[in-house]
Amino acid sequence: MKPVFVRPQSLTDKPFHFCPGCHHGVIHRLVAEAIDRFGVRERTIAAASVGCSVFLYDYFDIDVVESPHGRAPAVATGIKRTNPDKFVFIYQGDGDLAAIGTAEIIHAANRGENLTVVFVNNTVYGMTGGQMAPTTLLGQPTTTSPYGREFGQDGYPIKMTEMLAQLEGVGFAARVAVDTPARLAQARKAVFRAFETQLEEKGMGFVEILSSCPTNWGMKPLEAVRRIEREMIPYFPLGVYKERKGSDAL
């Protein structure tokens, strides 16, 4: 019988621990598909963040470093510069990348580090119990914005992809979602492009993936999926924000 759906080789057979309806599992799979697609498993190193993605080492059959909170782009810089022939990707959540790690991601991008970044934006600190993140939407209540995020108090949700796309060192920057099959296909394409950017030495390949967090949003999985289209995509528009073409290497 011809198999129609198989587990990517780069994923281990350990069942995901993620909460029901969480998108980390889907996103892990996309990244594993990309590792398989480009045949880089034997030379891939991941820098994971502090947050729900901290368990990444359990699911990927590759070398993983868990960086200090927010510092994955700096740790990955050291790895990639020492081993330019290795494939290095970073996997960070929004609290990790867009709050405590803002300096590291901006400067890694600005240095044009040949790194692939998978940035999972679910608008909350997930692992620590649903505190406000830099990406929390206006009006969204969290445990540290109990009255709902308000501009005067908490500022606006931060748009990392738009910011990073401005930097010369970034070869590819896109925002995608995985809430529908069509968007999943787009997301796969974007993750693949972010991988190619590193392989072609065109600087940082950055993909922001809008993701659900039913547990900390206080929603059922299906409601959470619907929230991505209803609330997140209008504020965080999907699309490719930057793509360095053809031979214009960094």
């Binding site: 600190y125 119990g129 505190q131 445990t143 540290t144 109990p146």
Partner: peptide, 14 residues
């Protein structure tokens, strides 16, 4: 900044 096991202090203050 939230951090376990102190986050309840911040949440209470918020």
């Amino acid at each position: 900044y939230p951090i376990t096991p102190s986050s309840e202090i911040m949440e209470h203050m918020a």
